[in-house]
Amino acid sequence: MRFVSILMPSKSNMDVMSECAKTLEKFGVKHEVLITSAHRSLERTQAYVKEAESRGAQLFIVGAGMAAHLAGVVAALTTRPVIGVPLNTSPLHGVDALLSTVQMPSGIPVGVMAIGSAGATNSAFLAMQILALEDAELDAKLKEDRILKAKKVEVDSEDIEVRLL
């Protein structure tokens, strides 16, 4: 079974990372969610990544808080794509997580999204675009979603008068 694995370091991150899960659900993409930590539960993280790979995890979406080590540790444990979502969990409002995630050493990449909910949603879309390379049905759903978004812009602008100033 192919699926996307969503990891986060704390239950308090669920409000942001649930946006990722909701987006995957909307498109019928199988996924699972796990709370695990690079620091507080390293052995659990290591065991899960290997086990998830063996069950068909195609890629990992990882909430990255503060020093963002969870995304880096997951990337070190797998050759599957890892997408990091910087979380706004520090006095630096997620900038520390963003910079830590971007600064992975050469050869151990983590794709990095925007900080917070927009990044969580976009991580799901990027994951689906990767999966759609070998899934024509998912590719069609993503294309239809783009068409619907374009139509919404047109509908939303119908009542707006356009004029040069």
Rank of each mutant, 00 (worst) to 15 (best):
M1C: 03
R2H: 10
I6V: 15
L7W: 11
L7Y: 12
M8K: 12
P9N: 09
K11S: 14
S12F: 02
N13F: 13
M14G: 01
D15T: 07
V16Y: 08
C20K: 06
C20M: 05
A21P: 05
K22I: 01
E25G: 08
K26F: 02
G28C: 04
K30M: 12
E32R: 12
L34Q: 13
T36W: 07
L42Q: 06
E43G: 00
Q46I: 12
E53C: 07
G56F: 03
A57V: 04
A57D: 02
F60A: 10
I61H: 06
V62S: 05
V62D: 05
G63E: 08
G63K: 07
A64M: 03
M66A: 11
A68M: 11
L70K: 09
T79N: 08
G84K: 03
V85G: 06
P86W: 07
T89L: 14
S90P: 04
P91L: 10
D96C: 00
S100M: 07
Q103E: 02
P105V: 08
P105S: 01
G111H: 05
A114V: 01
I115Q: 03
G116P: 10
T121S: 11
T121R: 15
T121F: 03
S123D: 14
A124S: 13
F125C: 00
F125K: 13
L126Y: 09
A127M: 06
M128P: 00
Q129Y: 07
I130P: 02
A132G: 13
L133S: 05
E134L: 05
A136C: 00
A136M: 12
E137D: 15
E137V: 11
A140Q: 15
K143V: 04
E144K: 15
D145W: 12
R146N: 09
I147W: 02
K152N: 07
S157P: 00
E158K: 15
E158R: 15
R163Q: 14
L165C: 06
